[in-house]
Design a protein around this nucleic acid. Sequence first.
DNA 1: GTTCCCCTACTCGGATACACTTTGTCCGAGTATGATCGG
DNA 2: CCGATCATACTCGGACAAAGTGTATCCGAGTAGGGGAAC
Lengths: 142, 142
Amino acid sequence: MELTKTSAHAALAVVYLAHHPNEIVQGRQVAASLSIATDSALKILQSLAKRGLIHSHLGRTGGYRLNRSPEAISLLEIVEAIDGPLEAEVPIKSMSSGLSVACEVLRVVCDRAAKQVREELSRATVADLLGGEESQILAQVG
Amino acid sequence: MELTKTSAHAALAVVYLAHHPNEIVQGRQVAASLSIATDSALKILQSLAKRGLIHSHLGRTGGYRLNRSPEAISLLEIVEAIDGPLEAEVPIKSMSSGLSVACEVLRVVCDRAAKQVREELSRATVADLLGGEESQILAQVG
DNA sequence: GTTCCCCTACTCGGATACACTTTGTCCGAGTATGATCGG
DNA sequence: CCGATCATACTCGGACAAAGTGTATCCGAGTAGGGGAAC
């Protein structure tokens, strides 16, 4: 499983917003905390806002804030908001008779693997990323 | 889960060899059955041979043949022979204090997802890809 | 008939050129707030 | 004192440039089997 830079930044951006609840945070601040360019952060935040994960405020005192509680935002939603749907891909069009069956099986296996990844990512919420004692993730690591 | 074109072709190449047991098959034939260039097929076959999944014969009557039984070759081995080790990747170097914990959790989650994928891919063998009635994969799809 | 040599057909593997996706940057446009000016 | 207008600071989102990675192709080198010539 590999995230893209952008989706990883998106997750951290959401975490940053979660650290400032009930507060409108400018994109510039998010960019600074992630050490990335303001434009890049804005693009990320826009994508998240379009998906309804965060809320954007226009105008002079504008900015972003979390739209739901951290427990209600899964990592899967964040990643899919940025990288698009996370599904199986077998980049092969058609195949001769003897190998077409193998192609199908290949698809089935990849489909299963993708499903596993989706489940794993949907299990982790922003609350888990916050690092509090209530985290369900690190606790299991020991 | 998404394979690259090359790793998908590699899987099909192994299946093709499995369809011709105890027989030395030229790279050219494999290329033809996959409808790809001979050079591309050779590169794939070389990578597989380097990993010991298939055996290469030099010289005039040279070619390739399976080195093990189809049941003993997992899809994971094929994919990793081509695309390299299949592990978690969180492409972020370091992060400010408040977000470093989130980074760690992110890594843990991705690590788990990667592990799931590896398990899924190691469960499928070339024998499953052959499409015989003994396939453990398609049978479960129903 | 045997031996030696060369030719041929294959694999090997590095190098290179191409294509596509991801990433980063820029800029014009829209929007709401606050200040300023005029009534 | 009140309301309209303007300036400001932010988001929006499309377009573009740069970088990185996956993909395809090329070419010289090495290897082993077969055929032919000489002994």
